[in-house]
Design a protein around this nucleic acid. Structure first.
Length: 585
RNA sequence: GCCGGGGUAGCUCAGUGGUAGAGCAAUGCUUUUGUAAAGCAUGGGUCGAAGGUUCAAAUCCUUUCCUCGGCUCCA
């Protein structure tokens, strides 16, 4: 039995081989097509093609798959051939993509290799399976997409065909079934079914309309964050949604972040901007009064909505919107405190995530890349990076390093969570900043009487409430735990004569701060249970003759079919306890 | 923004040039229900929008808006 590592490598080879097979079939069917690249990826493979003027769509997939099945019979092996640069170029003389690769590889001193199977030959560094004719059987083409050559939007857009391949039919079926299941958890679908949020073309793209039920979840989470942060000594504030352009010039946003900001608006002859970030506003709270080292760390927090221009094609449900709400805060501290403060933030985020049941997120350290624009000089960046690395080391964090993912004012640590389809989304973030305090001339008086510049930590544990909730909806498949459920209890009355009693229960539950609805429709109990079940309400309370007489309720949980009778007081006690336990860290 | 799908009733969808449909939901009536769908009836649509072709357009063409999957970008 192969270890998982070996089988992962085998699967990669299988899929890479399948990419060759795809290219071979496409080339047979569309001889004028130019091939680009075709690697294996996490759940399958893709191949990029330049189809020239020919248009293809997913309707062509069966045709291509059949051709693949036909060709693979002649593929007994992958034969490696060493090829000279000249010969390789000659082979691909009309294909500018391969020529570009060949020139690059040759320049780098790499030996060029071709792999041949059947009549198909391709420039390739290898990584294939033996006997493709026997092993390359269980594949499926999945989707069609545009992709820029070499990932650069200035380059030509190629046509990418995604597919996947497995060792057995059963594994392929399971994967396709899993994809199907994942679609059922899609937060966009559940958001509509559970009446959580919507978008309106009249309002505009990427602007969330929170419906009553979604708004409840959002408010519960906001309250939860405020309450937890208050325990940690944060001060919560409110700041405006617009501010003068000069403020953003001072912060550096206008110079480095302009393309993400909405055009200035004229207010009495002065230019104002809609805020894309709250930092400069919180800086004003810090500056309000001179600060001493005794005031530090000074933590300013706000559930703050910001507005950023995202390209229309990037918008996606709640996961990428144009107005989003950050659980934002800025910690102003001494340089000596920075590491400890960063660690506190880091631990808070971890604790928070595990309380929502997220355990397989990725921690990503974002540092500068050479290409992008940043504030400050190397020395300051190194200072900031040193602090973050120290904090990560003390926290014994496992993290990946991502070049180019730094904020323009400093390095950062991001928490990345996967959605139902396995796509990764940056949620929580914590950043160390030596730049903005200097730009705004922030200062505090230290114990030695000298005036010094504080350090800022920018942090948003959930990141964006919109995005986090989108992921949370998928995480729970819409079946929120009781403390988050928009409707915690649904009362189901059996017949008309029970409605009066049902209403007294509604009132008692509401008085106890519970979110409750009554279904007193002229319907059978089975129908009401089915509805409540589809609404994913955690508790159904059924009331009929028996309950009226005994002054009880009959509880049916969303998660189980059994029901049992209980005194209302006891139910209230239990559910309140359940909610309280879940809603504190 | 770019490439490729899609937009028909509140929802899920059928309808390829000849009088807009189904199921669910809604409303009314009957029934008064005991743990995942009672029965009957009724209402509901400028077929995303604007222009064009045609005797005739949901259907064909053009433009545009929104949306989905990718790419680029990012919380």
């Amino acid at each position: 039995m192969a270890t998982s590592n070996q089988s992962k490598e085998y699967l990669d080879n299988l899929r890479h081989s399948c990419a060759h097979l795809l290219a071979a079939a496409v080339l047979e069917l569309y001889p004028s097509v130019k091939r680009a690249i075709g690697p294996s990826i996490e759940d399958g493979f893709y191949y990029d093609f330049d189809f020239g003027g020919v248009k293809i769509s997913e309707e062509d997939f069966p045709k291509i798959e059949n051709k693949m099945k036909e060709l693979v019979k002649t593929w007994k092996s992958f034969e490696k051939k060493n090829v000279s640069t000249e010969k390789a170029k000659e082979f691909y003389k009309d294909n500018e993509y391969k020529i570009e690769l060949i020139e690059e590889f040759s320049k780098g001193g790499k030996k060029l290799t071709f792999y041949q199977s059947g009549n198909y030959s391709d420039l390739c560094r290898g990584g294939h399976v033996d006997h493709p004719d026997l092993r390359l059987k269980y594949f499926r083409l999945l989707s069609l997409a545009g992709a820029y050559w070499r990932g650069n939007e200035k380059n030509k857009m190629l046509t990418r065909i995604y597919g996947t391949c497995f060792q057995t039919q059963k594994e392929l079926d399971n994967y396709l079934k899993m994809l199907d299941e994942a679609k059922k958890r899609d937060h966009k679908k559940l958001g509509k079914e559970l009446e959580l949020f919507t978008f309106s073309s009249e309002v505009g793209q990427g602007l969330t309309i929170w419906l009553p039920k979604g708004a409840v979840i959002r408010r519960v989470i906001e309250d939860f964050m405020v309450s937890e942060q208050t325990k940690m000594g944060y001060h919560h504030v409110y700041s405006p949604h617009i501010g003068q352009k000069t403020l953003w010039k001072k912060s550096g946003h206008w110079d480095l972040y302009k393309e993400k900001m909405y055009s200035p608006m004229d207010v009495d002859g002065t230019e104002y901007l809609v805020k894309p970030m709250t930092c400069p506003m919180h800086i004003q709270s810090f500056e309000f009064k001179p600060k001493s080292y005794r005031d530090l760390p000074y933590k300013i927090a706000e559930i703050a909505s910001v507005y950023r221009y995202e390209q229309s094609g990037e918008l996606s449900g709640l996961l990428r919107v144009r107005s989003f709400t950050q659980d934002d805060a800025h910690i102003f501290c001494t340089p000596e405190q920075a590491v400890d403060e960063f660690i506190e933030v880091f631990n808070f985020i971890k604790k928070l995530y595990s309380s929502f049941g997220f355990n397989d997120y990725i921690i990503r350290l974002g540092i500068r890349s050479k290409k992008e624009k940043y504030l400050g000089n190397d020395a300051v960046w190194q200072k900031a990076e040193k602090k973050i690395l120290e904090a990560l080391k003390i926290s014994k964090a496992k993290y990946i390093v991502s070049e180019g993912d730094a904020a323009f004012y400093g390095p950062k640590v991001d928490f990345v969570i996967k959605d139902a389809l396995g796509r990764q989304w940056q949620c929580g973030t914590a950043q160390i900043d030596f730049m903005l305090p200097e730009r705004f001339n922030l200062e505090y008086v230290d114990s030695d009487g000298k005036t010094k510049t504080p350090v800022m930590i920018h942090r948003a544990p959930l990141g964006s409430l919109e995005r986090f909730l989108g992921i949370l909806i998928e995480h729970y498949s819409g079946a929120f735990p009781t403390w988050l459920s928009p409707v915690q209890v649904k009362i189901l009355s059996i017949a008309e004569r029970h409605v009066l009693y049902a209403n007294t229960i509604v009132n008692q539950l509401r008085t106890n701060g519970l979110r409750v609805e009554l279904n007193d429709k002229n319907e059978t109990l089975g129908n009401k249970i089915r509805d409540a079940q589809n609404e994913k309400v955690p508790y159904m309370l059924i009331v009929g003759d028996k309950e009226v007489v005994d002054n009880t309720v009959n509880i049916r949980k969303r998660s189980q079919k059994e029901s049992n009778n209980i005194k209302l007081k006891e139910f209230i006690k239990n559910i309140k306890k359940e909610i309280e336990e879940k809603s504190i860290l």
